[in-house]
Design a protein around this nucleic acid. Structure first.
Lengths: 246, 246
DNA sequence: CGGATTCCTTGCGCTGGATCAAGGCCCCGG
DNA sequence: CCGGGGCCTTGATCCAGCGCAAGGAATCCG
């Protein structure tokens, strides 16, 4: 079940706490989220529409083809964005990290399902509410559009990966791209966290779980990476980059 | 070489003809392009910034990673949008058809190369010029953003295809999706035009040219499609849909 | 009209990654 | 401390699609 700690209808006092301990002003992801383009007064305006929503590992934020009632800022944790084929085959379109905005396209239905890979905190807005704010603030729309452009670039990168790379190239490129994304949100480290399981990586890279496992362990044995629980330390970056052939 | 028939610097009289025989008002793709959201006065404003540009088969409209000096509406013909790996492997990200807008994301550099598959007519705008118009007209930005959302959905569909479908499913899904896109721009027909070559399809679907050829001919022999020069007639739609597993 | 070029088809053997099948490890609850 | 379940690893075998090679059809051009 979804837990909407920010439901304001009946408990307006709890609401402020629900939204954020001290409001958007000291939100962890303010500077890396779409909100970074907003003025303080605009931020307050948006804050009045926001609800906090937390999920535990495995819970679904929204499902593919459901009416898109809300849009979300990811504050903490990671989610898996998936699409299903009728026969159950699964493609993981990507992973949402803190600072990411879900529902970017403001479309009527969600095009993917979003599931929590661990404890997740999000900032929720009613889609109509949010769309109205966007309508009134072209620079916010501009920012969303820029993000959409970035997403489009990422998805092109992913298509190139899925269509034209070998299994080893895929895994190496995945580790490097994840490291870049963490760096982009100010979470740089030699050790890349892997909050997703092997099956999720496989479904993201168009491989099987066995192949992903084999290749990760091969990279480990070759001292290109060091596998640790829940992550991987990238030892030989230049070798990985050569492997990724990017 | 690019032929910019709309270059206004030295031949202002030729310019109007260069733009469009009778201006945007009776542009073939006005109703299906981004321009469809513009008022007549806005259309004139944009027309003043437009230049016609035609290409012959094989010519490059722009190249991957080049500074994005212009954005384009495709008026007629089709283009191939590709990305290259350093070693020459190629992924065709998609095909641009009449009504499509190239440079949607308004980014500083092109993320793909665009090459004409046959004679192509486009309507070109300086990126800065166009961005200024967009800045002044939020509903145009809104329309661009909607298109970006549609592109994002298409590219997710393509990722699912590349990652999780068999060769036969890929080819069937490709034919059907092309048919849908032609229908969307008012070019419905049982016979789907295939302005791209086998190698382009292969590079789009993550297959080899041989596999594409084999499967198309297998579908032909099975009377699911009828191959004709430059296209394919979709005979057994329901069978193709079952194959595509969408 | 003939020669060249480009694109497409088809056959054949090979291989990268899938599939099948066992375990192994770790965490959690009792 | 033990037992069960979820995830991960590893080995053995298989096969869909690849790579190579040869030939065919369409188009262009002199």
């Amino acid at each position: 079940m979804l837990v909407d700690t920010g439901s304001c209808e009946r408990t307006p006092q709890a609401c402020h706490q629900g939204r954020s301990e001290n409001g958007c002003a000291d939100c962890k992801v303010r500077l890396i989220s779409v909100c970074s383009v907003l003025e303080p007064t605009e931020l307050e305006e948006l804050e009045a529409l926001s609800h906090h929503l937390t999920l535990d590992k495995g819970q679904t934020l929204f499902g593919q083809d459901e009416p898109a009632g809300s849009v979300f800022n990811v504050i903490e944790g990671a989610l898996r964005l998936t699409r299903l084929l009728p026969d159950g085959r699964r493609q993981v379109m990507g992973f949402a990290l803190p600072g990411d905005f879900l529902g970017l396209a403001l479309q009527v239905r969600y095009s993917v399902s979003a599931e929590a890979l661990g404890p997740v905190r999000t900032c929720r807005f009613g889609r109509e509410d949010f769309a109205a704010v966007v309508e009134a603030k072209p620079h916010l729309l501009r920012s969303l559009h820029e993000r959409a452009g970035y997403e489009l670039t990422l998805s092109q990168e992913q298509m190139l990966l899925l269509g034209r790379r070998t299994a080893e190239e895929k895994v190496a490129a995945f580790l490097l791209s994840l490291r870049d994304r963490y760096a982009r949100i100010g979470h740089s480290s030699v050790t890349v966290e892997l909050p997703m399981g092997r099956q999720d990586m496989a479904d993201h890279l168009g491989l099987t779980i066995e192949t992903v496992s084999r290749i990760l362990n091969r990279l480990d044995r070759a001292h290109a990476v060091l596998l640790v629980p829940g992550g991987a330390r990238l030892i030989d970056l230049s070798r990985l980059e050569r492997m990724a052939a990017s």
